[in-house]
Design a protein around this nucleic acid. Structure first.
Length: 422
RNA sequence: UUUAAUAAUUCUUCG
């Protein structure tokens, strides 16, 4: 049975889910009964390829075969729900695990903490980590790594460092993931200098920085619009004997875009493709489009868009949002709306970024009426939920037009829905 | 030395 399970797992990891499923169904033919591992493997495999319904089905099948789930099973299911963005179901799974008498282990806690972080529920992530300690489970390096990542997402640099110190207090040796997350926190918190300190710390702690650490540091420089320093980090990668990867170049290109150095962005692209043989991916193209747009080079943005299609990379909602923004910056409101219609025709679902970008376009053109029309349309036809940025942008638009009373009213609405003004 | 589960870096909107 172990050999067959191993085979199941291998098929799953090779993304051959159908083959895995067939093999699973043939167990009986070989005189084998599915054990808890067989089922868990199937749940995990389906979850990892985003087939949450199938994962759930596997779980039900397990129960119908009277095989008792264990901690592996539940953790796999929690992760699967997390991947699908189903926080409630993940929580529910965690609870039913306890009800079933399966005591949550570190992995189960870590899995749920991760789901909280992914959904932006940072407080809950920390609460659960405290709860796990209360229940006698010892947080491990992954727990701390996840929590540092949580702080990064919340842009709370101080807290990231305090988690890092906590980790050391518990005599756990931070691994490269922890360091990279810590640098990422510095990046998101716009404190590149502290990122460099962390890199230094890695070196003196016998943890030579890897490509993740360097890439995060490039991003840290980029967010602070320090392009030259970003390229210095790139040089350091080479000196360290590491190979820059796609993310390295994408981060560099993004850095150039933020600093409005479009030409440099294309230089980086050239090195990426011609020197390292990395194909441009959707991040690359989207960053380039954004870089052009921010520098008010709309035509160039469209050139990149066409090139993207020609090279077989599918434009996504981010692509269109960036293009719409590019139009907005040169006040081309008609073209912006054309793009919006185009994306709908291509069945690409507009999101809240699309809405906010379009409102910003209207704002730049001083068209308050259009701004409110698009708001209505997005809510009613596209199920888009306005967020804090939506209100900020609308208020900004009204303010510029001198409609202060309406702006105040919106501010009230904002509070009523539970959004906090900034 | 491993039959199964958990963490990190790059793309878009207002400020």
């Amino acid at each position: 049975i172990r050999h067959y399970n191993a085979l199941l797992d291998a098929l799953g990891k090779a993304n051959r889910l159908d083959d895995a499923e067939s093999l699973f169904c043939e167990f009986e033919k070989y005189g084998l009964a599915h054990d808890v591992a067989s089922h868990s493997i199937m749940i995990s495999a389906n979850g990892k390829s985003g087939r949450i319904d199938d994962a759930e089905r596997c779980f039900r099948r397990m129960k119908s075969e009277n095989v008792k789930p264990n901690a592996f099973t539940y953790s796999a299911l929690i992760e699967a729900f997390g991947r699908a963005g189903r926080l409630q179901k993940a929580e529910e799974t965690f609870r039913s695990m306890i009800e079933d008498g399966v005591v949550p282990n570190v992995v189960a806690y870590n899995a749920l903490i991760k789901v909280y972080v992914k959904r932006g529920k940072i407080e809950k992530a920390f609460k659960l980590s405290e709860e796990m300690t209360k229940n006698g489970r010892v947080p491990d390096v992954i727990t701390y790594g996840t929590l540092i990542d949580a702080c990064a997402k919340a842009r709370d640099v101080e807290k990231a460092f305090s988690v890092f110190n906590e980790l050391k207090k518990h005599q756990i040796k931070p691994n490269r993931v922890c360091y990279a997350s810590l640098i990422d926190a510095c990046a998101k918190g716009k404190q590149p200098e502290r990122g460099f300190e962390v890199l230094q710390l890695m070196k003196i702690s016998n943890t030579p920085p890897d490509i993740f650490a360097y890439n995060a540091l490039i991003d840290a420089c980029g967010r602070a619009k320090m392009v030259n320093r970003a390229f210095e980090v790139y040089d350091e990668i080479l000196i360290a004997g590491l190979i820059p990867d796609r993310v390295t170049f994408n981060a560099l290109i993004s850095a150039c875009g933020r600093a409005r150095e479009v030409n440099k962005a294309f230089e980086a692209l050239d090195i990426m493709i011609n020197k390292y043989g990395h194909e441009a991916d959707r991040h690359t193209y989207n960053s380039l489009i954004d870089a052009c747009g921010k520098s008010e080079k709309m035509m160039k943005a469209f050139e990149i868009y066409n090139r993207m299609i020609k090279n077989g990379v599918r434009p996504c909602v981010v692509t269109y949002n960036a293009l719409i923004d590019a139009c907005g910056r040169v006040r081309n409101i008609n073209l912006a709306y054309e793009l919006f219609n185009k994306m709908r025709k291509e069945k690409i679902k507009p999101d809240v970024y699309t809405l906010n970008t379009l409102i910003a376009v209207c704002g730049r053109c001083g068209d308050v009426e259009k701004a409110f029309n698009i708001l209505k349309l997005m809510i009613e036809e596209e199920n888009v939920r306005p967020d804090e940025v939506t209100y900020n942008t609308l208020i900004d638009t009204l303010g510029k037009k001198g409609c202060l009373d309406k702006a105040w009213k919106l501010l009230q609405d904002m509070r009523n829905i539970g959004l906090k003004p900034t």
